[in-house]
Design a protein around this nucleic acid. Sequence first.
DNA 1: CACTTGACCTGTCCGC
DNA 2: TGCGGACAGGTCAAGT
Length: 293
Amino acid sequence: MPELPEVETIRLGLEQLIIGQKIADLNIINSSSFHFISTNTTQLIGAKITDVVRRGKVLIINLDNDCAVAIHLKMTGQIIYIEKNSANASPGFAGGHPNDSLISKLPDRSTRVVINFDNGHKLYFNDQRKFGWMRLMLKHELSSMSLINKMGPEPLGEKFTQREFEKQLSKRSNTNIKAALLDQSVIAGVGNIYADESLWSARIHPLRLVKTLSKSELAKLRKSIVAVLLKSIASGGSTDKNYLNAKGEAGSYLEFANVFRREGLPCPRCQSPLIKIRVAGRGTHVCTVCQKP
DNA sequence: CACTTGACCTGTCCGC
DNA sequence: TGCGGACAGGTCAAGT
């Protein structure tokens, strides 16, 4: 379930851990978890990592040649970096690895791919449900990948203005607002957790049709999306079951969540019990007093 | 065309 | 205790 804040947290971690490192070899344990798009392993071996970027929920590791590794974690994917001999204090993890118990367990049965660096450090791609993927591809083909070229604006980017938000939503005017927020071509990176949290914050019921929302409601919603995403990044993302950052650490945002996975508990604003319904095929958390249908 | 639903997977939890 | 089934949700293909 990694959404924008979780992928961004991983990106921030990888940025300090793997830039400049040289890839020695690749161990593909589950073949459907790693795709070669107009490429092969020779383009990976010996390449150095130059930078790590993100587009929506997609993580992109750029190499010092014409290739990049694109990664989608879908629901249960993890990208975890482990240093050689990391049980001992090492330069990257003074005092030991933040999650020593994890190290002794990797690789485990959810490990799908391992990237080995020439210094002995490793990058694990774990994915319990095998929905996620890594793709070695040519950089110039990244922007034409259908997933990316259809993506809407980055909600934390300068182009995510009120005018742009309204324009994007007008593409889905006849559907409910929750389905629209989950549509990556409307906004990139919002998933189930942050759709629910943003709608609660803006006091909008998830089933409201987009075309019935007033300008002021849409303004409140846009601000709520930005605020919720920023707060989650500051908390290291949300760990529900599987999510861990690049160092193997959980995120704490769910401690601050107002509605997500809180059905039966009192609404933090009005104290009436939160309920769980199904919208756009997803479990959806709502306060029907604050968020009028 | 616009929108909704099912498939892809595996682990966990619930009821019997 | 064991077993079947529901559930978790991101994206794409198929269906309405």
